[in-house]
Simulated assay, not measured.
Amino acid sequence: MNAREKLLAGIVGGVVGLALLAFGVRAIVIAPLRDLDKRIGVAREKIGKIQTQRRAYFAAEERLGEVVRRTFADTVDEAGARSGEMLTRQILAAGLRETGFTRTPVSRNTVRGAKEIGWNVQGDGPLTNIVNLLYLLDRTPWVHRTENLSIAAGEVPGTVRARFSYLTLVVDPAPEVQRTNLVATATLEDPARHLLNSIVSRDIFRPYMRRPATPPQPGQPAAPFSRPGVPPGPENFRVVSLSEWDGQPEIHVRDLAGQKTLRFRPGDELAGGVIALVDYRPLPRPDNALLQSYSRVILRIGTDYWAIERGRTLADKRKLAAAELPPGLAAKP
């Protein structure tokens, strides 16, 4: 090998050595740096998640504090007592009698971090005042939910019976918050309350009455007048309502043949006798002693008294024994 070949071989060897050195430096220095960059990226991602969770935690803690400030108390016993006092105040504010309502404490599901408590409420009163109560309870500032609402006709004419559950929360453990003295500020003069007047004006519990029949066209014979006591027979006349309006009992009798409703008051003639009064005592039904009948019309025929239960026809009238007469009626001449 001459000098020139030796020079070329040295140059090639130097190039190869430099290449190997470069790969070695890369493997020794650059690869750990890349690995370090990856670890830094993973750490930054974890820190970002932690910061997001931290912000969410403080936001949730703030919302929880707002909820706790709107609860009645931090303990079940104290919250139950305060919510019961609030219910009493709202019943009176709605124009209802406190003694006319029963309140039974109820404890519902225990969820994580809170317990659901409340009251099952039941009572009778005029529909207007029941709507007042539901409105006032809905506008109370405390955390609450009203559910299982049921409204039906009451036992006394002109009243309805309401049943519902008023529920609230007790947070446990509750964070330390600066409580404020919450006060129910809703009144019956609020514009939002007046929007509910249509519920009362519709009189949803008054018995259904069919629209009067179209009068006959000129030249056509008019339908014969149908009244109790004449054909087509007393079985075609049903007592559909024994309401009381402005303190005066009113008897509604449905003419099933003529498809119209006749109205009577005490002193009017009905079913061959004179209406003595409307009896609102809850008594066992004559056809089924296991069921209750809450009203009936009392007729005086001669010296005897007869009764027709609400929902029955005039053909179902029955003679009353002296023990079945309402108080004071037997003494009347």
Results as ranks from 00 to 15, higher is better:
53 Q>D: 10
74 D>E: 07
78 E>V: 05
42 V>M: 12
71 T>Y: 06
55 R>E: 04
54 R>S: 15
64 L>Y: 06
48 G>A: 12
79 A>V: 03
73 A>F: 11
78 E>R: 10
51 Q>D: 05
66 E>G: 02
70 R>T: 11
63 R>Y: 12
60 A>I: 03
64 L>D: 06
78 E>G: 00
61 E>C: 02
49 K>Y: 11
70 R>E: 01
82 R>C: 00
52 T>K: 14
55 R>Y: 04
50 I>L: 14
81 A>P: 03
43 A>K: 14
68 V>E: 00
49 K>T: 15
45 E>H: 06
54 R>C: 07
63 R>D: 13
50 I>Q: 04
45 E>C: 03
58 F>H: 11
65 G>D: 02
70 R>I: 04
77 D>K: 15
53 Q>I: 05
65 G>W: 04
66 E>S: 05
72 F>N: 04
55 R>F: 02
47 I>N: 06
48 G>T: 10
49 K>S: 14
81 A>M: 06
42 V>R: 08
77 D>N: 10
58 F>P: 01
47 I>V: 06
60 A>W: 07
50 I>F: 05
47 I>W: 09
73 A>L: 02
60 A>M: 04
76 V>H: 03
50 I>H: 01
65 G>Y: 03
62 E>R: 12
81 A>T: 11
62 E>T: 12
68 V>G: 00
64 L>S: 08
77 D>R: 12
55 R>W: 01
42 V>S: 10
58 F>D: 13
67 V>F: 05
56 A>H: 08
65 G>H: 06
82 R>S: 06
76 V>I: 10
48 G>C: 01
51 Q>K: 11
46 K>M: 07
73 A>D: 12
66 E>Y: 01
66 E>K: 06
79 A>S: 13
73 A>C: 09
43 A>C: 05
52 T>Y: 11
72 F>D: 04
73 A>I: 07
43 A>T: 10
80 G>E: 11
58 F>N: 08
48 G>F: 09
60 A>R: 12
52 T>N: 12
76 V>A: 05
66 E>D: 11
57 Y>I: 08
52 T>L: 09
46 K>Y: 02
66 E>T: 04
55 R>T: 09
47 I>Y: 00
73 A>P: 06
77 D>A: 14
60 A>L: 07
60 A>K: 07
73 A>G: 05
77 D>S: 13
56 A>I: 08
50 I>P: 00
70 R>Q: 08
82 R>T: 03
63 R>H: 14
81 A>E: 10
70 R>V: 01
50 I>K: 05
69 R>N: 09
51 Q>V: 08
80 G>F: 09
65 G>T: 11
56 A>M: 14
60 A>H: 13
62 E>W: 09
71 T>N: 10
70 R>Y: 03
43 A>D: 06
49 K>N: 12
77 D>E: 15
81 A>R: 14
44 R>T: 15
68 V>K: 01
65 G>N: 10
79 A>G: 01
61 E>W: 09
45 E>D: 13
45 E>F: 08
82 R>V: 04
62 E>M: 04
81 A>Y: 09
58 F>T: 12
82 R>N: 02
64 L>F: 07
69 R>P: 03
73 A>E: 12
65 G>Q: 08
68 V>C: 05
50 I>C: 00
82 R>A: 05
67 V>M: 09
61 E>K: 11
81 A>N: 03
53 Q>H: 05
